[in-house]
């Protein structure tokens, strides 16, 4: 019984220990623990961002690591250890760059133009140049950030305009409502039909006001146009600012079209009202101009919006 137990215990310990030792040995071997290691010395004017154990990378592969650093009269000396199997990539023309990625740890990247060059002499101390991803990224990001800032300001103006009860877009809508309200009243129509000057002037004033406001709206939308392709969900999305403006303008267009039709009817039924014919023609022209102007704006918006079928968050 004891013998049997002893055998099983012994067997288990031997097998498990061998497995573990083999695994650790394999890892150690692959990590170059048993191979000959070459040491090279690099120089730098600062030890900032350099640490012992930092990887040395060639073509994306870890080929060694920083073993130690020392401060000397000629600057900082960095000793790197390269296992024998990777030593062929360290040549006399090799360049060493300290890479500081935005994410992850810093590393020394080795670039060798010609692998057939003579090996790097251990007595030569090549200098490490610094590639700072963060600073470069900030340089690239800065103009984008400024653009984004402007976009933000424009969007704020637009949204404020839409939300403001005294804003231009709201006023356009209110005026159009007044126009349609006037036209829907029978008395007003009759007055127009008989050529009452006050009624005609009232409509003309309203429409010229609409026309003026539309011109200002055009100005807003020109600013919006400069943002095309650089904004996000809030501008282009289903409930974004652009579709909202477009819908408002479409609505306006539809209402003005109704006025157009009404005016046609008035023209037909009031042929005898000679005095009013001249005024009605002026009114008709104003209306045509307004409809054309707003129609152009809507087209401009439609031209911008279809490119944003799949709105996404754009990161620099």
């Amino acid at each position: 019984m004891v013998q049997k137990v002893e055998f099983k215990v012994g067997l288990f310990i031997i097998v498990a220990t061998l497995l573990i030792m083999a695994s650790i040995g394999y890892v150690a071997y692959k990590k170059g623990f048993f191979s000959k290691v070459y040491t090279y010395t690099l120089s730098s004017n600062t030890a900032e961002n350099l640490t012992e154990g930092m990887p040395v990378v060639f073509w994306g592969f870890n080929i060694g690591q920083v073993s130690s650093m020392e401060l000397t009269e000629r600057g900082v000396l960095i000793h790197i250890k390269i296992p024998e199997r990777n030593n062929r990539v360290i040549r006399a023309n090799s360049k060493f760059v300290l890479d500081k990625p935005l994410f992850g740890t810093s590393r020394i990247i080795v670039t060798t133009d010609n692998l057939n060059d003579p090996p790097l002499s251990p007595k030569v101390f090549p200098e490490i140049t610094v590639s700072n991803d963060i600073n470069e990224l900030i340089k690239k990001v800065q103009p984008i950030a400024e653009k984004l800032d402007r976009i933000g300001a424009s969007v704020a103006t637009l949204t404020a305009n839409l939300a403001d009860p005294q804003g231009e877009v709201t006023r356009i809508l209110k005026n159009v409502e007044t126009v349609t309200a006037h036209f829907s009243k029978k008395e007003s129509l009759l007055e127009m039909a008989v050529g009452t000057k006050e009624s005609v002037k009232s409509i003309q004033d309203i429409l010229s006001n609409v026309n003026g406001l539309t011109v200002r709206m055009d100005g807003i939308l020109k600013r919006v146009d400069t943002l095309a392709g650089k904004s996000d969900e809030e501008i282009y999305g289903r409930d974004g600012v652009f579709p909202l403006v477009r819908n408002i303008l479409r609505d306006l267009l539809a209402k003005l079209a109704k006025i157009d039709a009404t005016l046609d009817n008035i023209n037909q039924i009031s042929v005898e009202a000679v005095d009013s014919t001249k005024d009605l023609k002026i009114l008709r022209n104003s209306l045509d101009e307004t409809v054309t102007a707003i129609g152009t704006l809507v087209d401009q918006l439609d031209r911008i919006i279809p490119f944003q079928d799949k709105p996404g968050i754009k990161l620099p």
Binding site: V5, V9, F12
Partner: peptide, 16 residues
């Protein structure tokens, strides 16, 4: 040693 062998047998080998 005997105590160790017995204990190891119960702890590791039997449970394997």
């Amino acid at each position: 040693r005997m105590v160790f062998i017995n204990q190891f047998y119960f702890t590791s080998v039997q449970i394997l």
